[in-house]
Amino acid sequence: MELQEQTTVQVDLLKSFEEKIGRDDAIEPKDKMPDAYRKHLIRQISQHAHSEVIGMQPEGNWITRAPSLRAKQILLAKIQDEGGHGLYLYSAAETLGISRTEMIEQLHSGKAKYSNIFNYPALNWADIGAIGWLVDGAAIVNQVSLQRTSYGPYSRAMVRICKEESFHQRQGYEIMAKMMAGTADQREMAQDAMNRWWWPALMMFGPHDSESPRSGDAFKWKIKRQSNDELRAKFIDKTVQQAEVIGLTIPDKDLKWNEARGHYDHGPIDWNEFYNVINGNGPCNKQRMDHHKRVHAEGAWVREAAEAYRAKKEKQLFQSKN
């Protein structure tokens, strides 16, 4: 094909793709899509999948120490959900032409990221409450918005995930409420967890809109439907009241209701810390990656055995037929 012709075809393709987006039609795996759209989705969905999987670790740190059978059951079911959600998201990303093996390689090489929040340690039992209430709470605000994302498989995964995660935030809040109604030690642990998780939770929404403008491709192609600051405000507005009900103090002296905006104003977020953790210097970056790499390496012989067994059985079946 002549270069001229090729360019015309690409322009037509982009036009019909953008018309589809304009009509709010979902984009499906076999639809033609601009390379940049595909790349953006692979990056975002695989990062989302890795976050679910790496997110199993901080909570996993408390499974064997959960203080009651009920607490242990809930925690296990929640972490299991996260593994399942990682699976749904890996599947969604796979429809774009990348394999799970490649995604794991990218995670291990550092090319693919996961949510910064999981580079913080879970230090006391109230951290399990704070992770469910604040971290899942923040994630849910984002994920509810993503249910309307333009890529069909991603959107469907988000719908399923949102439905299942509705208990995650509630169980976290229940832990916090119980501890705030408990002994002085328990209240201290709860407030301590609140102090450590509040700001990282706000950072989960990403940089301010002034740094990350709404006009990018992610908005144009309706991958993202609401801005970082809009989503962050939504989270703060609903969480402040919940904290008040159980007597927790939000560690932000500048936090106050802004009648004119209809939202809370909050104090400055420490973006230095945010970028520092992104760049690998958070308290647990190395630990989380080492854990994932170790488990992956330790599991190789099992996966190889499963494949070898299948191959043997197929060969036997073939021979018995011939």
């Binding site: 999987v53 972490i79 299991q80 593994g83 990682g86 699976l87 854990h291 488990v295 099992v302 996966r303």
Partner: peptide, 11 residues
């Protein structure tokens, strides 16, 4: 939990 050879087996 979070230590199985493949994610499906973790579940």
């Amino acid at each position: 939990c979070s230590n199985a050879p493949i994610l499906e087996e973790d579940l």
